[in-house]
Nucleic acid binder design. Structure first.
Length: 322
DNA sequence: TCGTGTCAAGATCTT
DNA sequence: AAGATCTTGACACGA
């Protein structure tokens, strides 16, 4: 039984390699004319796409095959001010190059629209903005040539709006109304305040959509019940998917700031978790959501290389012995 | 060059 | 009803 490790968006170990450089709307407006504004957007986008490819090459060298793209690849992409700008067409070669590299080297790529993207909002405007944001993510996947649905977008359920039942219903309704090219990309995740792992699981089972469990969030709102059973059902939602189930993992910053993410993964915390998963006997991937990004991954990987009943295949992949 | 307040975006808690 | 807070990496401005 094997698992792989992945990390989010940026590397600590490459110089000047941000994939999410941007411009604030304010300073964008202050630029003298349309030409200067477009120039700025293009320059940033080009740099971000180049840096994404650099990061992927680095990941490949480090045997890290699980990676989350930043959602900020294209500055102000979904802002009303840039709506006429066809960045997909302009950068089609760059997007394609990234997608080719992903496919050639067998990466598991994902993305995570941020928490402003909510499809259960009661506000028409928020819904519109959210759809535009989902569309933006999907368009990039498609431009990369990653157009089968195995490359996913992770989302939360959204707000509670003082009425959980109605809010869940609204989520399901708008989920089912989404076009295939968006809906079939979606993976749903439990959050740390509103929708517990069990809440999300029930939604996922009904909608026949895979679920990612965030272990840290699950500790923030634990809906009770047997963890192995819960996990087994969650892994079951991946049955018809190309990739194995994935979980998100991070360690709390401290007991006081429990919800905040720490810089590094606590290795004991991690091996405790592994003990709970290994009864399932199924391969899976783990996305590490910590501040120190790939440094934390490599650090954890090193620590795990001494752990009993684990064998390190390479930096990003382990075998668990029962 | 460095430190700090601010940033496109929503929801929810606090006042 | 308005304002603060959450969270995040990076911008932007002023010292």
């Amino acid at each position: 039984m094997r698992f792989r490790l992945g990390y989010v968006a940026m590397t600590m170990n490459l110089e000047d390699c941000s994939p999410s450089s941007t411009v604030t709307f304010n300073s964008y407006c202050k630029l003298p004319d349309e030409e200067a504004r477009l120039y700025r957007l293009r320059k940033l986008t080009k740099k971000n796409l180049e840096n994404t490819l650099r990061i992927l090459r680095y990941n490949n060298a480090m045997n890290i095959k699980v990676y989350r793209l930043t959602s900020k690849l294209v500055p102000l992409a979904t802002h009303p001010a840039t709506q006429g700008w066809d960045y997909i067409c302009e950068f089609k070669d760059e997007f394609k190059r990234i997608g080719d590299y992903v496919k050639e080297n067998g990466f598991r790529i994902s993305a995570h629209p941020d928490h402003y993207t909510l499809i259960n909002s009661s506000s028409e405007k928020v819904m519109e903005d959210s759809l535009r944001d989902l569309e933006y993510h999907v368009k990039m996947y498609e431009a990369m040539g990653l157009d089968d649905y195995k490359y996913k977008l992770v989302m939360h359920i959204g707000g509670m709006y003082k009425d959980k039942q109605t809010s869940v219903k609204r989520f399901k309704d708008s989920f089912e109304k989404l076009p295939d090219r968006i809906r079939k990309r979606l993976v749903l995740e439990n959050d740390d305040k509103s929708y517990s792992a069990l809440d999300v699981l029930e939604i996922c089972e009904e909608l026949k959509t895979p679920m990612v469990i965030d272990i840290h969030h699950h500790k923030c709102i634990n809906s009770g019940g047997n963890f192995a059973d819960l996990l087994s059902r969650i892994f079951g939602t991946w049955e018809n998917e190309y990739f194995n189930p994935k979980v998100h993992f991070s360690s709390p910053k401290s007991d006081k700031e429990f919800r905040s993410h720490s810089d590094y993964i606590d290795v004991n915390d991690f091996t405790n978790f592994l003990d709970n998963v290994k009864v399932l006997g199924k391969d899976f991937d783990i996305m590490l959501e910590v501040k120190a990004k790939d440094s934390a991954l490599l650090h954890l990987s090193k620590e795990l290389s001494n752990a009993p009943s684990l064998k390190r295949i390479n930096e990003g992949e382990f075998e668990i012995f029962m």
